[in-house]
Write a protein that binds this DNA or RNA. Structure first.
Length: 464
RNA sequence: GGCGCCGUGCCCAAGUGGUAAGGGAGAGGUCUGCAAAACCUUUAUGCAGCGGUUCGAUUCCGCUCGGCGCCUCCA
């Protein structure tokens, strides 16, 4: 089965065909760094971390670019409120965001800032003016003329005439048409600005993504990604700017959109106050659990976040962890580097089908079930145990979820050797039927976070 | 009002024109000195409702009801 991707532009799943064989270029809309990131901001980052891993797994050389819109109305306002410069504010929250990526184990991409790429933006605006898709208003603003671009609406499937009738867009006398949008905003007192042929000012909201994507990935690049809430008008405008400005169609070959993160049935957002920051969540649960949770729903579907959901995921994650820990102790050092072909094939098919991580995780748990059956068998075969634990590890590992061996998290003083000694003492106690003592040892270890499990073949243990 | 998405067991969540993955929770059982874990069995003749197409639909089409997103800043 070949890699298939749902393309919002065609409303259909398509076999992925890169512009250049073996290479894939991805542009994703980043964010406006003006506050701490919440789960909603991280969903796309995580989804595309996994998508990039899968492209690499399939042999692609991946380039992914994401922007920081580090100058815009909100940043200017927020910086003024806090009495600091816009650069300082944007830098603080960009770094904050990158730290969140790091704590979730998301591989960094090529981050680009608007303020460091003003020339590319000016150039695209100039091209749009040259081609008469834009005009300069009397105050120095530059607007895109939607009427000059007949394809406008092809991504979001809206027709301009319909929108106009029902629209409640405020009438801006500077615009020739209510649908027109700003490419360049003329300087206002106290705001950052850059010189331009149309007078000093700063970029409008949508132009940066068109300019940056084309600058760093070229014309007609492979994939453009973003949250579904950016579909209109942002992405629609990007297409208009990119295609009208260069004459090169399509601006991007495939459009991918991830679903929103909701809380209490409504989109998580700052204004509603129903958001959870990454730091809050990671204070309660390990990053692996959060990854597992987010990946258990397909990236395009909306996901409703609730702390109970994470608690459930934590339980299933523990099952995974415990089984692998037990397997390590029962495989007698048998090293197996292979993966169950049956499970691998199902897993790959799932991921090839529009990166269906939810279905792929289902396969992981099926393999886990095989592993547990072998562990529970009256005559467990170390080689079989190693075979299935390797399968589980490799499959889920390809989604960026590492099930580390337990010694990695050993607390101070409780070395594996010490625990092994305690197990030996307990074994002696049990052999002499001194159950009071053996239970005492088990309880004491439990209070230290060590869980014992007696099996016919001996006792295994793990850190809880 | 316009555009789009969605409605699967107690909860979460995949999925297919031919009879429903997986996870969490619950119930019974096996193993065990006990415990824990695991294993086995069990919880949808059913996939919002009503029509239609079809030999056959949860899967395609239409309508109805319900939820959500976007149309204003948004990941």
């Amino acid at each position: 089965m070949s890699l298939t991707i749902y393309n919002t532009l065609t409303h259909d799943k398509e076999v992925f065909e890169p512009r250049e064989p073996g290479k894939v270029g991805i542009y994703a809309c980043g964010l406006t760094p003006q506050g701490p990131a919440h789960l909603g901001h991280m969903r796309g980052a995580l989804a595309f971390d996994v998508i990039r891993r899968w492209f690499k797994y399939r042999g692609y050389d991946v380039t992914m670019v994401q922007n920081f819109t580090d100058v815009d109305d909100k940043i200017i306002r927020k910086a003024a409120e806090e009495g600091i410069g816009t650069v300082e504010l944007a830098t603080r929250y960009s770094n904050n965001y990158l730290a969140d990526w790091n704590s979730l184990g998301i591989t960094p991409v090529e981050f680009v800032k608007v303020t460091e790429n003003i020339p590319a933006i000016l150039q695209l605006i100039a091209q749009l003016l040259e081609r008469e898709h834009a005009y300069v208003a009397e105050n120095g603003d530059v607007y895109f003329s939607v009427r000059t671009f007949p394809d406008y609406g092809k991504l979001s499937r809206r027709r301009s005439d319909e929108m106009e009738s029902g629209a409640r867009i405020e009438i801006d006398p500077l615009k020739r048409d209510p649908l027109d949008f700003a490419l360049w905003k003329a300087e206002r007192p106290g705001e950052p600005s850059w010189p331009s042929p149309w007078g000093p000012g700063r970029p409008g909201w949508h132009i940066e993504c068109s300019a940056l994507a084309q600058k760093f990935l070229g014309l007609s690049f492979d994939i453009h990604a973003g949250g579904i809430d950016l579909l209109f008008p942002h992405h629609e405008n990007e297409i208009a700017q990119g295609e009208a400005g260069t004459g090169c169609v399509p601006f991007a070959r495939v459009w991918m959109h991830w679903g929103s993160v909701n809380a209490g049935g409504e989109k998580m957002s700052k204004s509603l106050g129903n958001f959870f920051t990454i730091k809050e969540i990671l204070a309660e649960y390990p990053a692996q659990v959060l990854r597992l949770y987010l990946l258990s729903t397909h990236y395009r579907a909306p996901i409703d976040y609730a702390p109970e959901r994470l608690a459930e995921t934590a339980r299933s994650y523990d099952r995974l962890r415990k089984a692998l820990s037990t397997a390590d102790q029962m495989s007698n050092g048998a090293v197996v580097d292979t993966v169950s072909p049956l499970h691998l094939a199902k897993f790959e098919d799932s991921m090839d089908d529009d990166f269906n991580s939810a279905a792929a995780l289902g396969v992981v748990f099926e393999a886990l079930s095989e592993l547990n059956k072998e562990i529970a068998s009256p005559t467990p075969a170390p080689a079989e145990i190693a075979f299935y634990s390797s399968t589980v590890r490799k499959l889920i590992g390809s989604l960026g979820i590492e099930l580390t061996s337990q010694e990695a998290s050993a607390p101070d003083g409780l070395t594996d050797a010490l625990i092994e000694h305690a197990l030996a003492w307990r074994k002696l106690a049990r052999e002499s039927k001194n159950y009071g003592l053996s239970d005492r040892i088990r309880d004491d270890l439990k209070s230290l976070g060590i869980i014992l499990e007696d099996r016919p073949q001996g006792t295994t243990w793990q850190r809880s």
